[in-house]
Amino acid sequence: MIVRVLREKCQGHARCWAQAPDVFVLDDEGYITPGDIAVPEDQERAAWRGAKSCPERALVIDDGATAA
């Protein structure tokens, strides 16, 4: 599972980090660090919850179900 990070949409709510602190890394201002995230299998559920909790919809889940 890949989480695509739309960094320009991040406004620092940090809801993703609250759900999955090992997956979503914040910078010193509390905003997500840029770059898409390859999620380890054992973190997928937490990462899914984190991505779904973004009020800005800045995190898009790509679970490989759709062709690139």
Binding site: Q11, G12, H13, R15, G30, K52, S53, P55, E56
Partner: peptide
């Protein structure tokens, strides 16, 4: 409730600075 992207602290660049 788990799936909860509420807007108590607004959306956008003026997201409540003190929200945390």
């Amino acid at each position: 409730r788990e799936n909860n992207r509420h807007v108590a602290f607004a959306y956008g660049p003026h997201r409540c600075l003190g929200s945390h």
